[in-house]
């Protein structure tokens, strides 16, 4: 879709998850810079040198996923055979971060590629399959690593260059959640799959601007089809739009009649300190929203600060080849609603 935003026709509105599954456990593994950031205390594990004891950055990323899923099993008290399926993804070619990282576990595996929206995509698919009764439990895991992403998408790590102010910093981090048919919340109650939206942005150093139209499209469809108001939520969090994408999203939704500014934040702006950590427009990568949601946000649910939030995972759909060939970057935004209570009148509720 290149013109305008999608109309809210049949099959384009919000999906109510049947028998809303509980987010039974969550786990996060991050790098040093993320540990040093404002949310540092919320993460379960971190490595001092970002290598996680491995000799390549790609193995380090896989190790983060292995640790995250292992920790998830430990925290939930589940065994591998209790889990029906794991939905996992990362940014590396052919999703090797996930497939290699999760080799040790005998759990049916679905590899996802939603760019940086993968955590929301994984949560959405696992909640639908658990809610639909196919599995009693399913997990979603994803990761990104600054060094493996830099090597693949930009330049060698030791290459000396300046970043533009709109560039974002790939988060070294992995997050995992376990969804269960039984439990007392927090629940995934509603989801809204994203539509890819492309508005002609070709600058790979301005992904926030490339992804913002997708986030706007998804949020506008959500509000129009669910009848919910921005103020019904304790927080509306986009994945990794960074400063530029955050501002565009807030302003354009306001112009469309949805004032989300009071409750709106972006995981890419939360994970680092914009003053002291020199990350330009903010954090990005699958691990950005994954670690903020699984570390910070779900903790806030556990202590009762949050009752109701919208998580909109955002991804930039492109490759190094497509960017070199001058093709524009499309965005995608998947929405997941997390609530402390099941909505009244839900099936099985």
């Amino acid at each position: 879709m290149t013109e305008g935003f999608a109309s809210i026709g049949k099959n384009r509105g919000v999906l109510t998850v049947p028998n809303p599954p509980t987010i039974r456990a969550w786990a996060t593994v991050v790098g040093k810079k993320e540990h040093d950031g404002p949310l540092g205390g919320d993460f379960d594990l971190h490595a001092e040198d970002d290598r996680f004891g491995m000799d390549t950055w790609e193995k380090a990323e896989s190790e983060m996923q292995r640790l995250a899923l292992g920790l998830l099993l430990k925290k939930s008290g589940c065994r591998e055979e209790d889990i029906g399926a794991v939905f996992a993804g990362d940014l590396l070619n052919q999703c090797t971060g996930s497939s290699f990282g999760l080799l040790d576990y005998g759990i049916p595996y679905f590899g996802l590629y939603g760019a940086c929206s993968t955590m929301a995509e994984g949560m959405m698919l696992s909640s639908l399959l658990v809610g639909g009764g196919y599995f009693s439990q399913a997990a979603a895991v994803c990761s990104s690593h600054f060094c493996s992403a830099e090597r693949q998408f930009r330049t060698p790590i030791e290459y000396g260059g300046q970043r533009t102010p709109t560039a974002q910093w790939t988060v070294t981090g992995s997050g995992a959640v376990l969804l269960s048919a039984d439990g007392c919340g927090p629940y995934i109650t509603e989801v809204l799959p994203g539509i890819s939206v492309q508005k002609g942005i070709t600058d790979a150093n301005n992904m926030g601007a490339a992804m913002a139209p997708a986030a706007i499209d998804t949020l506008a469809r959500y509000f129009a089809s669910s009848g919910a108001q921005p103020d019904d939520f304790d927080a509306i969090l986009t994945g990794d739009l960074g400063q530029v994408g955050h501002d565009i999203t807030a302003d354009m939704l306001y112009a469309m009649g949805y004032d989300i500014r009071r409750v709106y934040n972006d995981c890419g702006l939360m994970i680092y300190s914009s003053q002291s950590q020199d990350v330009h427009a903010g954090g990005s990568g699958c691990g950005c929203s994954a670690s903020v949601i699984c570390g910070h946000v779900l903790k806030k649910f556990a202590c009762g600060d949050y009752k109701n939030i919208l998580f909109v995972g955002t991804g930039a759909l492109m490759s190094t080849t497509s960017v070199q060939q001058g093709l524009p970057i499309a965005g995608i935004a998947h929405l997941v609603r997390i609530s402390a209570e099941k909505p009244a009148g839900t099936i099985g509720g």
Partner: peptide, 13 residues
């Protein structure tokens, strides 16, 4: 809200 690519790119600047 209709928004073509050209308008958006100018908006982003």
């Amino acid at each position: 809200m209709n928004l073509d690519a050209k308008t958006y790119q100018n908006y982003v600047k």
